[in-house]
Write a protein that binds this DNA or RNA. Structure first.
Lengths: 186, 186
DNA sequence: CCGCTCATGTAACTGGTTACATGATTTA
DNA sequence: TAAATCATGTAACCAGTTACATGAGCGG
């Protein structure tokens, strides 16, 4: 049974995110997409050139994106827009049912470490919590600024999305307070 | 300048997590470590054989783990314990300062999608939120059960860690309530 | 004795990363 | 005019995944 290779049925989250970005920004270059990732603290992906350029080309070949050859002076400038197929894929990504994995636990380096705090003595445990709190407070400020930035830009959906990240950081901070109380109480 | 290859200076989070697990469970087999990952909903890693077995061998060769050849009947059974070097690595992982990335934003498939909800019409947006809430409630129950399980097992640190995951899921649910209000209000 | 779990692995693949290379355009 | 940014890519690598293969021990 010869599987047809090279034709992917399901797009990755990164690919679908790129479709969403292109839809908002169209017509835009692969570089602009890349910047959207790397210039924002809100993204899990670094948006490296080595990821974005091949990915965008793939999406073009698969018909999800439409490319247009332009130029700026004598420099070639390839801009993209969302094709009908791409819009359909984007909608299917968002429409219920979500995959089970969507609600699954998220990776948190601080929580991951906290499983093993038994190897530290009480003073060190407290130092861990204090350091983690400091870093999360900084992250919180960043995220809040990002919400404000989106709101100023009139992108209410992104502001709403980002406020989810704010909620999560607040929850992580509240949890660290629990930890601290537990450590200093015992 | 010939870089010495094959000798890694920094261990990954997965490797350090394995060190932590072995420390708790020692003497234990690679299989037991694998089960710890795959049998728990609390882990980001699937703990696949293809990841764990080579990883454990690496940690043994680098001196972080000590192996002991045993048998169960006529079946060979290789058990591991944490070496002094491994304990040191584990402590350094936990001791401040944490890396900046530790506080960084986490990947959330639901939030990632929510950036692009503008492509859906209001009824579909609501359906998205309702579906996401349903799934997160299920995840919350799972996580709470996990906390209880750890607590029953007397592993207070893991219970505490897992309660961080509970906090985060609660925050995600609260955020979805915000979203829902926003969508039905406008 | 059948099927499940314990136990140990390997091979091929995947989806990203870093680092590098090139050159035009804009800005200080 | 030098440095930063725009713009487009490639090559090597990396840390995981899925899927497969093998076989012993154990409970119904």
């Amino acid at each position: 049974m010869t599987l047809e290779r090279g034709r992917k049925t399901v797009l990755t989250d990164l690919e679908l995110t790129v479709l969403g970005i292109v839809r908002k920004r169209a017509p835009c270059t692969a570089y602009a997409v890349m910047r959207e990732f790397s210039s924002s603290p809100s993204s899990y992906y670094r948006g490296s050139a080595g990821a974005i350029y091949p990915l965008v080309r793939r999406l073009e070949k698969s018909g999800h994106l439409e490319a247009r050859e332009g130029r700026q002076g004598r420099r070639p400038r390839r801009t993209y827009a969302l094709a009908a197929t791409g819009l359909e894929a984007l909608r299917n990504w968002l429409l219920p049912p979500l995959p089970d994995a969507a609600a699954a636990i998220t990776f948190d380096p601080i929580r991951t470490r906290s499983y093993f705090l038994a190897v530290l003595d009480p003073a060190e445990q407290l130092a861990f919590v204090v350091d983690a709190e400091k870093r999360l407070e900084a992250q919180l400020a960043l995220n809040e600024a990002e919400v404000a930035r989106y709101r100023r830009a009139g992108d209410e959906f992104s502001a709403l999305a980002m406020s989810g990240a704010v909620r999560v950081v607040q929850a992580r901070i509240a949890w660290l307070a629990d930890l601290r109380e537990h450590f200093s109480g015992s």
